[in-house]
Design a protein around this nucleic acid. Sequence first.
DNA 1: TAGATTGTTAATCGATTAACAATC
DNA 2: TAGATTGTTAATCGATTAACAATC
Lengths: 216, 216
Amino acid sequence: MRRGSTNRELKHALLERLMHYYHFLCGQPGAPTPDTVTSTEIARLVHMDDTLVRKDLAAIGVRGHPRVGFRSVEVLSAIRGVLGFDTAFESVVIGAGRLGSALASYPGFASLGMGIVGLFDNAPQKVGLTCGRHVIQPMVSLPTVVRNHGVSLAILTVPPDATQEVADQAVAAGIKAIWNFASTSLTTPDDVFVRHEHISVGLAELSYQLSRMSEQ
Amino acid sequence: MRRGSTNRELKHALLERLMHYYHFLCGQPGAPTPDTVTSTEIARLVHMDDTLVRKDLAAIGVRGHPRVGFRSVEVLSAIRGVLGFDTAFESVVIGAGRLGSALASYPGFASLGMGIVGLFDNAPQKVGLTCGRHVIQPMVSLPTVVRNHGVSLAILTVPPDATQEVADQAVAAGIKAIWNFASTSLTTPDDVFVRHEHISVGLAELSYQLSRMSEQ
DNA sequence: TAGATTGTTAATCGATTAACAATC
DNA sequence: TAGATTGTTAATCGATTAACAATC
């Protein structure tokens, strides 16, 4: 049955705002999270309208308390629930270059529900090397690792000309989603979710702002 | 005078779309860029409405040709001009961890007008080490490097609890913008542009989609 | 209670899309 | 020329904000 459970897809922009709230409510280093926050306080922190904050929180089912605001733990746990941070899943990193190694060793993923159970690379001189807590494995081992650990996400940090082929192998191995850090677009089956991480978008914005500054 | 030159600030979403067009027009590996493209073709590639593509291109001053479309080189060079890719600027990377090293060695930045002239870290065991084409320098050298090379951007890849202090040092050294890869927010003077790179937003979206998939 | 804050409806605003005339 | 495509105005749509009643 599950009435009440909103089953329509949440907009990308909403997810982004939720992550923004989550982030601020987790507290800055040194400043602990207070017990309750008002929508106005959140809004000021993230430079938004307080009505939108209340709408967003209502959309994910958090109830506020008149005269008090929202309880931080309730907000945080609702966001965790909606974003799926409490639904742990496993991933592999493919491409053991500098970026791949950095991601494979990043400590912040665990608390968001993502585990990394393998680091892969096909370069013979890399296979077998230790990288943080990982030993670099060859691509032939991918299907086995995916099966044994129930891996659902492949994080791709391979050179552009290899990305499509590696993506195909990951899909064939049974992964459900791809996080692509290469600047190439991918062709994948419809039931595989692909997220591109466009670092150049960030650079574009910086470049634009810097050239504006120097203009005057 | 400079009439005609649109001086109002371009929206973030527009910059993002422009980067998206730029990306596709640069061509996928193997598929060379055709001489001309129609707004409909671009729209299909990036899954958008063709009218919006024409509006965006008009906004940055590219004229199309009825019955022909847009000349790829004109579009590319207009985007380069607007985003400031032809206005080269220098940057430094602060924090020589895995991510910092990866960014300092990334070859794709040069063609977008960004140079990296220094890699900094305060850990005594890192200072002096070679990392790609960089030698890791201590923070005390930052002001000199910034001055000598006219550095305008600081790329921050230091641990969260050090980010604010490092940002202060960078600002004091005279940089004009900060690209922050740590998950902490920063307090900076109004004339310093800060761009946060939120990797957790990407993870949030993947996590959300994966938990939706497994839901049914 | 009075007052602060939520929750929600209505109004506004901006961005996207549709329609179509202009162009080569 | 006929037809494909641009450029632009008008219509639509959705998202944000304003207003205010409900709540504790």
